[in-house]
Design a binder for these strands. Structure first.
Lengths: 200, 200
DNA sequence: TATTCCACCAAACGTTCGTTTAGTTCTCGG
DNA sequence: CCGAGAACTAAACGAACGTTTGGTGGAATA
């Protein structure tokens, strides 16, 4: 409980984390030194240890925020009831929206490789989310709403491969209003493909 | 010109490079130490300096092999002539095949961030390839063969976001014969989408 | 067999890393 | 205005990094 005494901080914990995660994404987590973080925030590199326990905690908080946002999508009512195809389309759209809204955090999450315990735990949580989506795709295939000629697990991976690729190229600072167009394009391409010819 | 004299090498340069690139992909390039490479190959870490000039050259050779393979696809006759939509479908299929065939090298390429000159040059070569594919998508849109309601550049990014996602999850050691099925699924999903309903 | 050349290695080098220690500066409650 | 407490910093720490040095051992040539 902060009682107001002491020097006021220049940045809140959340502001610091956002800047830190941005640098992690520019340079890569391993290639980012505490010096780099200090330069980006204007703080001394040792000052981080008053706000966070170390570099790995910064990573854990960053990927945790992404995982929380993605898990929240699967908990939404429209993702839990209704025809499987509708639920799936909702999850695709909302996941794309979360990627756009929480871009740096999800970008960090998608690059985790599993070198440390923090990273392996993040990969585990991500696998759980992926499995729940794969079940949704399977249900939609069983209901005949999506093409039966592609293995549901394979379809899930390609589908979310496309969705997740948003983090590879979408830069909101270059086209700040492009977010909704990106989300619409993802949903359209995922469901109907590129071709103007009819399906099959 | 090797004249056969001296102790024969345990591994060829190409064999070494393949093992090295695999470790780079498991741990991430920055997180991989020369000790890690030594352990994976059975060589002493200083022995690498008789085959390569250093860690960064290993990276450059790895991503170079991926870029050469991808550039070769765009130079194939079927990618250079015929209706734009046919050329595009050919490039999608062949790119997916190259990803499967040269998986570790393309995986390494797709994770490059641009921290060094070697990495920035690789990013530049990759941008050139992407631009040529984007021109192909634009031509197919102008010809009316693919849906006109999505910006060609955006469509290119999402399309190859899906294709490139193969490197994120395809593991040939787990399902050695799954390659062709993956390629077919990519082409089908890219062109026609998931839905069994007709387009639009 | 003597020579040559290549593959390989042990040890050490200078540098940079994440982190710790021991403080200083600033703000506010009393 | 005093003292508590929080934000912040300079300097230094041991460890790990990529690389260099100086050399050993073994196979082919002559």
């Amino acid at each position: 409980m902060p009682d107001g005494r002491g020097r006021p901080p220049r940045y809140s914990r959340d502001e610091l984390l956002e800047k830190v995660v941005t640098v992690f994404n520019e340079r890569g987590y391993e290639a980012t030194s505490m010096e780099d973080l200090a330069r980006a925030t204007g703080l001394n590199k040792s000052s981080f240890y008053h706000h966070f326990n170390g570099k790995e905690e910064l990573l854990g908080l960053g990927v945790g925020r992404a995982l929380d946002a993605l898990a929240a999508v699967l908990a939404e009512p429209a993702a839990c009831s209704g025809p499987p195809a509708r639920r799936l389309e909702h999850v695709v759209r909302r996941t794309a929206e979360v990627l756009v809204a929480e871009l740096p955090f999800v970008t960090l999450l998608l690059r985790v490789r599993g070198n440390t315990e923090v990273e392996r735990e993040a990969l585990g949580r991500r696998r759980d989310l992926d499995a729940r989506v794969a079940d949704m795709v399977r249900a939609a295939a069983d209901a005949g709403d999506i093409r039966p000629d592609i293995d549901p697990r394979l379809a899930t991976r390609l589908l979310f491969g496309m969705v997740n690729s948003i983090t590879e190229w979408y830069r909101p600072d270059l086209r700040p209003t492009a977010g909704p167009a990106v989300v619409d394009a993802v949903v359209t391409l995922a469901m109907h493909g590129l071709s103007t010819r009819s399906a099959q």
